[in-house]
Design a binder for these strands. Structure first.
Lengths: 205, 205, 205, 205
DNA sequence: TATGAATGAGATTTCATTCAT
DNA sequence: CATGAATGAAATCTCATTCAT
């Protein structure tokens, strides 16, 4: 049962590309390096990807595809919104700050101007979907009378913003000496903050 | 009163550099373009800046210097922490999403791997200082009995995260068709969220 | 009765090669294209032809071989030279400007410097033979007292030159908008010119 | 009185380009070689010519421009057409087969498919103009009752064809061993042929 | 100080050719 | 025989940087 070699080869390349692009960005990563890291010749690279841009986009797309399917939640039923939101924040945070994924926002943000297609894709398929899920959760909470919120859209952005910062922190600032983040604790604290706020409950009681 | 030509020249260059780097990132911006945009020869550029990297760093530094002095608040006295925090979030958000500054986080995030010095500098002087101020405000609120918060550090990150997302949204996603953000409203909503949380007050009353 | 696959294959390749080389010249035609046009793999090409050059030469040779046998006339007997020459010019012109052959001079002229062997071959076997035939016809006319000619060699070149121009015109200039040539009429007029000249007969009478 | 260096530099390059392209054709001539031959760096080449194609076209254009001005004859007055035509054939032949110019037709013919613009230009400005002049001469001869000619256009092509063959002969076949042409004698013989034809004058007398 | 001109050192991309299967 | 896959060796073109004037 011989495994087809192409997929393997292709994923070797994408892996090497991910390593390169994530470490040095688009421009500073040479096709030569990627080829060497993938264990093939530069020309073999071009057999599978028509250009450096195409390789870059393929790599990002593959990463996103890898992440998306598991991000779509089912119907919420009668579960309490608080629990759902806590779980989603924990899940999203874990996923977005994982070693393989954390650099994606950085790359999208960094190269977005030169790759509008990619930025659009990421906006539509990742950010948009993430926000959509959060929004559904918040609406669920409002319907159940659990949550109170004047501006849903903005609140959702606050939620996503905290998670995104974690990814950026890990990839941009930790390598230059920032205090490492405990992502689990951070996700929990972030959930606490957006759920309970900073103002003391007793104040309004 | 002889016109000081050098400073003017210098700021012309920095302005041109900012325009270029903010539009196309570090690698895709050519020294030629910057020189032309600044109205001088490429060689004249090198009389003022030793290298492309030096110019890039100078531009970022200048921007940060421009922004920092006004960002440091004095002692809080006996003011309510809620008001201070609202004001600071509004201020920080306005500043960080302003036309001249919004691209800075994007550039820092995008080129951070290739410019560790810059990332460190930005972390120490901007993010760090911003977080420090927020933390002081939160502590002030805790001392006054206004706030309740289990994990101060993380809560502060949640606060900054929301603001940062606005800047990224504006520079990365709005150009590719994302719904534009009303930064003032967003800042206010963000302040609401982190202050009050999503859970209904009456629930705990 | 097993189908002879190799000859068919070979001529498929030569046909594809002819199409490619005639349309784009030697350098701009890729082995890949030829293989695809011939319906085989690139590697299969190399089973039949050792190199691109070899394929090119084989293609030209085949074309020439196809044309030459019919170009060699027998003894002229007692036929009038004028008729023979008219017929030969018509024949040569028709052949050399035919769709399949017209590009050959162009390619030979264009790539002659890089393929001296080919240029030599074409000179010896095609131009040389053509000139030889013309010369024999002219000598025949002189012997019969039909023709008067001071410099036979040069006259023959004048004859061939007109025919060659037609082929070049068709392949080089017609594709870019030149007025199309009616080769039959042109051959006839060319024969008229070289036979009668431009000066009025009555003048010398 | 310092002479501007650019024109000199530019013509150095064009000279080197002419040498390269004429010897090896477009594809086989490397920019590196041209640069070295011109005594400058490859990058300096690109300072003056945006691409290899642009350089190629500039070189051909310059050559053509060099040749054109002197090719335009004045009014013919009352001179005998025969003398004018003889002189023009001699002139055109000498010019077209001169060491600097002879390769031009070869290059145009060889690369015409890949440079349609150039082929068109050459057709319009060189071939067209040459044919135009010949046609004017022939018409002049017809008006004066000197010439008899059924098909002027075709006759003119016969005239030009003989001259063109000389250039092709020199550049394509002489390098591979063809008998060298004495262009002066050839031009004269060609003029004899097209003027007098091959048929004996006395025959019709 | 200012600049037009020049360049060294790559970067991406191409393609004829080979080889294991 | 046939081929998919691979590659070595360029070729074009770019750009940060320098230097003579």
């Amino acid at each position: 049962m011989p495994r087809p070699t192409v997929p393997t080869r292709r994923s070797d390349i994408l892996l090497a590309a991910r390593a390169g692009f994530s470490a040095r960005g688009f421009a500073a990563t040479r096709m030569d390096d990627i080829a060497r890291a993938a264990g093939i010749s530069k020309a073999a690279l071009y057999l599978q990807f028509a250009s450096k841009e195409a390789l870059f986009e393929a790599m990002v797309n593959e990463l996103i595809e890898t992440m998306l399917p598991q991000a779509a939640p089912a119907d919420f039923g009668d579960l309490p919104a608080e629990a759902i939101l806590r779980r989603f924040i924990a899940f999203l945070s874990a996923r977005i700050t994982s070693a393989e994924m954390a650099f994606v926002p950085r790359v999208i943000i960094g190269e977005g101007a030169n790759f509008p297609e990619l930025a659009r894709f990421y906006h539509d398929k990742v950010i948009g979907r993430g926000l959509g899920i959060v929004e559904r959760i918040v609406r669920h909470g409002l319907e159940r009378g659990e949550f109170a919120c004047a501006d849903i859209t903005q609140a959702c952005r606050s939620i996503i913003g905290g998670v995104l910062l974690a990814a950026i922190w890990k990839t941009t600032f930790e390598p230059v000496g920032a205090k490492p983040i405990d992502t689990t604790a951070m996700a929990q604290a972030h959930a606490d903050t957006v759920l309970n706020g900073l103002l003391r409950r007793t104040e309004t009681a």
